[in-house]
Amino acid sequence: MQFVIKRVVISAILLVATSVLIFAILRALPGDPVAARLGTAQGVNQAMIDRLRSSAGLDRPLVSQYFSWVAGMTHGNLGRSYFTDRQVSSMILSALGPTLELTVLGVALSVLVAVPAAMAAARRPRGWLDRSITAIASAGMAFPPFVAGILLIIVFSITVHWFPARGFIPLTQDPVQNLRSMILPSISLAAGAAPLILRYLRSELVTALNSDYVRTAAGKGAPERRVMLRHALPNAALPSLTMIGLITGYTLGGSVVVEYVFGFSGLGALSVQAAFRRDYAVLQSVVLLISALFILVSLTVDLLGWWLDPRTRGHRG
């Protein structure tokens, strides 16, 4: 239980520190969003700039700006975009769908590919299958998501017309088309993410397969399949759970460029747009939200690992 409390507290501190860091970088540094917005317009005078600054709260001390951002967050008010004057929260809400779906599918696909591959590779360490799988994995790790995305579009959308090259179709609108539009983006993310899980899980599996309890299981007469699935895999998967957190971070980061490649208007695209326009109000909230998701997933898998392991959880605790 102590572990749970400690882990939750650390994550909370991490989250607060992250928000301070994002805020500090965006505000404490030169460059004025209002000037940036009006800079090219004609007939701008100081009075207009000041009016806009005060309406965005930019004339107040930084600390008070920070706290009003955080205070607003607690009841879902993230302020307005400096640029479009839209509610940041509603902008985020409408962009959340594609990013979440992309992340979930990217992580799911990575796990789905990595787990069987790791089992196949770990059966005979240094055998030809192991070597081939490891080689493919290191090749996959060299594929940044956007490079993978572009190559996939060239092959599967332009050369053969299997999947659409661009555009997100919401799940609620057309589940089949939604899935079709998600396939290439998910593969782009999984290309780099799956090898990360695979490598880790493979080495954990090799350790597990060499363990005494696996020998006991074989000594009882358990067939190879059962030894792998019932004994080696759970023991190897438990420490590998952390990798899910890591992959989520990778996928969330990768979605920024993948959304750009595939023309999704998700959080990644929103953050790129906000960075372009120096729309700090939007940028800080989007980046914090994505970091929060990352921290939350890492926390969840850690706690899940704690709960699944009878040694840490305590007897039926």
């Binding site: 006991t216 004994h231 023991n235 040694r311």
Partner: peptide, 8 residues
Amino acid sequence: ASSLNPLM
């Protein structure tokens, strides 16, 4: 100590 599966 190591001959029993710790998760079962």
